[in-house]
Simulated assay, not measured.
Amino acid sequence: MKKLLLPTILIILALIIAACGDDDTVTDSPENNQTDADQSTQTDQDETIDNGSTDNSTDDNADDNTNNNTAANINYNFTSFNLEADFENENDAVDVDYEVETDETEASYIDKQQGINLVGNEAMDELDSIFNAFLFDENTADEEVLSEVLEAFNIPEDASNVELEIDFASGVEKEYRR
């Protein structure tokens, strides 16, 4: 009986650990963090994302205490941003993924040189200031976009491989490579 107990416990623990996994879903906007007083009025419901809203003002309606201030309310000029860069003999030395979907926003940020490995809200906290500083749009010259992104993420000009894919809010999808 003791021989069966240990393997059973190990299997159960392995299943629990596997179920936890990495969750890169963003549930809280870095610029919309609430104060303790605001948080005390929240319900225990899951936070929802309202991609159609551009108004981040609070609603005084006492019946609606669900937090709608999520990363989807952040207005970048793109809905998807995927960057992979290889340099200093390191594959995917920088790997950034950001995507707004219908009902959620996902984000991850890895920079092996700087020891950054973030997902979800933590990734958005770091990426928000970088994304807000971008000045390019779908009409900007490719080299200018690449130059701005390389500088923002501290990627050396001699990087061996840079792949950038951006889906702009206008619907234009562009790929940039170096």
Rank of each mutant, 00 (worst) to 15 (best):
K3A: 15
D142I: 03
V26H: 03
A169P: 01
A141P: 06
C20R: 03
D36Y: 01
A18R: 01
V26Q: 04
D38A: 10
T8H: 04
E47H: 05
S129Y: 05
D128F: 12
F153Q: 02
L127F: 10
G52P: 08
L10S: 06
T58I: 15
D46C: 03
Q42R: 09
D63W: 11
N82T: 04
S108E: 14
K112E: 15
S129G: 13
N154I: 12
D86E: 00
E31D: 09
A133N: 06
I49H: 07
E165S: 12
P156I: 15
I155R: 03
D95V: 02
I11C: 11
L127A: 10
E165Q: 12
D142G: 04
A19Y: 09
K2G: 12
E122L: 04
G21D: 13
V26R: 01
D167K: 15
I166A: 01
S40L: 12
E175M: 00
D55F: 06
L146Q: 08
N69K: 05
G115P: 08
A14V: 04
I166M: 01
E138G: 02
S170K: 13
L5D: 02
N139F: 15
E148H: 03
V145K: 00
E90I: 15
E88I: 09
N69M: 10
Y98F: 15
M1A: 14
S129T: 11
N139A: 13
V145D: 02
A159V: 06
T8Y: 13
Y76L: 04
Q39T: 15
L118I: 06
I74L: 12
S129N: 06
M1V: 14
D24M: 08
A72T: 04
N65R: 02
A85R: 02
D44K: 00
D137W: 05
D167T: 14
T70K: 07
L150V: 04
L118T: 10
A93F: 00
D50Y: 08
